[in-house]
Every structure is written in structure tokens, then in C-alpha cells.
């Protein structure tokens, strides 16, 4: 059988992923994450009487901490799987990616294990995040003059 023909045969028996369903799940859960974030900002700014800008930093730290802690406790991965991308795209996903890699390699030492492998998944996000921030910043400077 030729490769093309075989690939058609494979396609015939490969189940379709529920793109729409997954998208809706991610949208709703991601939306709730946004609500939670906003609630935390309002909460911190009310309780500590601080401006929302500072409260949003504390909110970010809180969500990162929660993502890391729940990953260590061993059930965040199941939530992430069922939430599709609803928990990966927000800051919790980044924390989850780093924490899971760190956990995985902790027995291979601080330098050769955790240090070398912690950014295994999250490294790309940082590289391309920084590059695209620089690029769009430059565009903004050219178009809007800063």
C-alpha cells in the first residue's frame, strides 16, 4: 500500500477531537479564572487598602502559588486535563508547567536536575513571550510614538 493511501485509511479510523466542546469548556473555565482573579484584586485592594495595581501583583502571586501547590499535591494535572486549555492559558498553566518539571527532576540534583529541566516546558513561553513583547513594543513605538 502506498503511504498516501495508508494515511487515508488511518484518517478513516482516527476519532475526531471535540474541538467545539473543548473550546467552550476552556472558554468557560478560563472565564471563571478571570473572575477569580478580578475578585482577588478587589478583595486585596479592599482588605489591605492598596491601589488595584499593587493588588493585581498579589493576585498573580496567589494564583501562581495555588497552581504550584495543587500540582505538588498531585491532582492539578487532572483538573488541567478536564479543563482543556482553561487552566493552561492563564498564569496557573505556567506555574503548573514549571512545577511539574521541577518535581519530575528533583531526584536528579539541584543543578543537573531541577535547574536544568525546570524550564523544559515553560522555557519556550518565556523566550517567545519576551521576543514578541519586544516586537510589539517596537511596533507601538513606530505607529503611536510610544
Amino acid at each position: 500500500m502506498e503511504k498516501n493511501k495508508y494515511q487515508n485509511l488511518v484518517k478513516k479510523y482516527t476519532p475526531k477531537e471535540n474541538v467545539l466542546g473543548n473550546g467552550v469548556t476552556a472558554f468557560i473555565i478560563g472565564g471563571f479564572m478571570g473572575m477569580l482573579g478580578e475578585f482577588l484584586i478587589q478583595f486585596y485592594s479592599y482588605v489591605f487598602s492598596i491601589p488595584t495595581k499593587e493588588a493585581s501583583t498579589i493576585m498573580t502571586v496567589t494564583l501562581i502559588f495555588a497552581g504550584c501547590l495543587l500540582t505538588c499535591l498531585g491532582f492539578f494535572d487532572k483538573w488541567v486535563t478536564s479543563a482543556k486549555c482553561g487552566l493552561i492559558v492563564p498564569i496557573t498553566g505556567f506555574a503548573h508547567a514549571m512545577q511539574s518539571a521541577a518535581l519530575e527532576y528533583k531526584k536528579e540534583g539541584f543543578v543537573t536536575g531541577i535547574g536544568a529541566n525546570m524550564f523544559k516546558l515553560a522555557g519556550s513561553v518565556i523566550i517567545y513571550g519576551v521576543c514578541s513583547a519586544y516586537f510589539f513594543g517596537l511596533c507601538r513605538l513606530i505607529v503611536m510614538g510610544g
Binding site: H96, Q99, L103, L121
Partner: peptide
Amino acid sequence: YPVEYGGPKP
């Protein structure tokens, strides 16, 4: 991926 990483799989 790391075992505790929960990215969706096909």
C-alpha cells in the same frame, strides 16, 4: 511530558 503535567492528550 512531566508526569504531573496535565496538558490534554488526543
